[in-house]
Nucleic acid binder design. Sequence first.
RNA 1: GGCCCUAUCGUCUAGUGGCCUAGGACGUGGCCUUCUCAAGGCCAAAACACGGGUUCGAUUCCCGUUGGGGCUACCA
Length: 476
Amino acid sequence: MFSKLIKLISPISPIGPIRVRIAPSPTGYLHIGTARTALFNWLFAKKHGGKFILRIEDTDLERSDKKYEKDIIDGLRWLGLDWDEGPHRQSERLAIYEKYLQNLLSENQAYYCACTKETLEKERQLQIKKGEAPKYSGRCRNFKIAPEQGEIIRFKIPPAEKIQFLDLIRGPIIFDSSLIGDLAIAKNLQTPLYNFAVVIDDYEMKISHVIRGEDHIANTPKQILLQRALNFPEPKYAHLPLILDPDRSKMSKRYSATSIQEYKERGYLPETLVNFIALLGWHPADDQEKMAASEIIRKFSLERIQKAGAVFDIQKLNWLNSQYLKEKSESELWQKIKELYDKKISIQNEAALKLLKIGKLRMSKLEDFLSLQESLTLPDYDSNLLSWKNTHKETTKEALRLAQEVTRTILVHEFNQKNLENQLMPLADNQGRGEFLWPLRVALSGKDKSPGPFELMEVLGKEESLRRINIAIEKL
RNA sequence: GGCCCUAUCGUCUAGUGGCCUAGGACGUGGCCUUCUCAAGGCCAAAACACGGGUUCGAUUCCCGUUGGGGCUACCA
């Protein structure tokens, strides 16, 4: 059984100190999937006292953008995934790639050609049809050592070789090199391509474990072949399951928010995201779900990583975030809300803190504060709403008058939930809770569903509370 | 199409041959708690894809089928 086999092989590298990396390309904002890969690498490094390295893979000049690089860096910082080295940038390491490119070329392990993947594939099909063993599968026929206009550098993939590697999460994976056409590794000496640059960098940066998304499994044999050609040691590999949309396809913008920034803006806490994302494809042995990063580090192990993809469930995220939200103080929350929604706030500090006190449990993300704030304005409601069940209008009116009377006697500085409760609850018990509390609450909120009357009164203050009760009495 | 990965409640998952009448969490439904809502508490419904093996015994091991996914660039 593979998992047993893997257990025998310690993930702690015998080839030197643990060094892992996150290698995003700055061609888009920090993606949830990238963040999760970063997190798992970070956890692994922290767990084993290794180093976590940040490398920006910006070899594609056309698609790369500094603003994306900034977003990625800011996002990783926000999540608290601090790195020990970097950011290294591939665009600043061109001389290094060129050196290795020259080596490969001079050793005849790489060549220039103008073929596209399609022409190579056509050639291969032709050979198969003619019954020739696809010995030079996907290889250009007239390759050259010297470049001509528009020619790229291809690496010669050995024609028939089994490439096997042991994935720390999945067990042995085997590929057949004859199925891989010669690999494009650079557009020219100054422009390396992904598979090549990765191999060079992982070697130069002494990466011990490559922990990355499952979508890179098929790249692994290509990279291993390159390592062999270059005489590099092979790092250990661990391919993480993908994060899926509800339709079980790879998570994409089409269905859900994919950028970390969006989650930040909606008011998810970084600790929530770290916790939630860790649970997507990993699970602690003790079933505990709400965990601080330090606890996750303590409990983390590669063996407990799932093999199948995990659907991103926004409802569970919301629940988790609400769990984190409710343990924060009102002032702490207010601080964050002000930073996030500055322009949209229409409420003073003191009132906001009171609102948070009653509203905190009703929020699953910080942006919910905005609708909470709005809910404080009294809508124009129907007077029928004031009566509880089939209570007579007169009875209701009486109850409100009584409430008004007692409320008046309460001093402004004692106008808090606790005290209001003490003063008014006996009346409610006397009159019947429903008959008393319901109209009072509707008078204060103008809604059929809202926080309780005493909570509302504290937030609204004495003057506004009395005003609203008065409006209700006049409606009846 | 080819190659590769994968398969426990709707979702995230526990489970490494007997402890499983398959456990937890989110979500859903019900009940309780100061009128409603929220929070909280309690309870409930809800899954081992299928077919062959191996074994005294399979959710667990092997093979196949089916389903799902990924990759298949002069992107990363």
